[in-house]
Write a protein that binds this DNA or RNA. Structure first.
Lengths: 135, 135
DNA sequence: TTGCGTGCAAAGGTTTTGCATGGCA
DNA sequence: TGCCATGCAAAACCTTTGCACGCAA
């Protein structure tokens, strides 16, 4: 079992995540935000911490068609995120956690008709959220 | 109206697409395949043609969590792909075109409960296909 | 002949990696 | 003190872009 240290850079990164829960951000977003706040931390530190947080299940990593950097998304209730689907607004990046019930019937049909097993944690429904549609 | 030429490099790329319909590939896959077949064409030619085919609606571009290059997917029946959802096997990359009926009820619920409008063309359900589950 | 497509080279951006140093436990 | 995490620098990728040339129409 590997020991884990609490360090200032890592804490700053985790603080950023909590302030940006349920929204999309990139490694560069974190870098810019933290470094403009006075501290100076390196790109590699960001990447190494994000990778570790993903492995620990604290963070979700995904890629978006028109953004050439990887996107990350953090949730307070991350523990159950692999069990339900998510919908992401393609305009603002906001992530909605969907109840399982809504999709149960559809996923059963997809299973029986196509023999396809859905991975809820990795599937992200893309569309437009309430607020962005009104704009 | 811009004229369009038929060239040898472009034909080679389109031939590759047709041979790899409903599967995932990257720009590098195409480059390697064509260049190992004797011909020599440049990266930029690949990228420019893929971009053009995407604009023309012949090709779908997307990004996958664990692949750091953009992925592309070609279908013979591409014309209707923006109207229905797709499911993609995360292991082999195979794409299945889903009937709309299956998901209509679920998307109506998502619309009414969350105010979220699904974009069928951009949404890709992730999971495991028949063949890969048996392995 | 016209002008689109290609090849070449260079550049920009993200992400990874090796290594020495610094700091937490 | 021991060992993990960080910073730094370099490198590996993918992708885009400018420019001159070749080739399809």
């Amino acid at each position: 079992m590997k020991a884990e240290y609490k360090t200032k850079p890592r804490n700053a990164i985790i603080e950023y995540l909590k302030e940006h829960a349920d929204t999309r951000f990139t490694a560069r977003d974190i870098l810019n935000a933290i470094n403009s706040g006075g501290e100076e931390l390196d790109r590699s530190t960001i990447y190494r911490n994000l990778e570790r947080l993903c492995k620990e299940g604290e963070l979700v990593k995904y890629k978006e068609r028109d953004i050439n950097a990887a996107c990350y998304q953090y949730s307070e209730n991350h523990g159950s995120c692999h069990k339900h689907m998510h919908a992401r607004c393609m305009q603002c990046g906001k992530v909605i956690h969907l109840e399982n019930e809504i999709l149960r019937e559809a996923s059963q049909k997809i299973q029986s008709e196509y023999g396809f097993d859905i991975d809820y944690g990795k599937t992200v429904i893309v569309g437009t959220c309430n607020k962005c549609r009104e704009k």
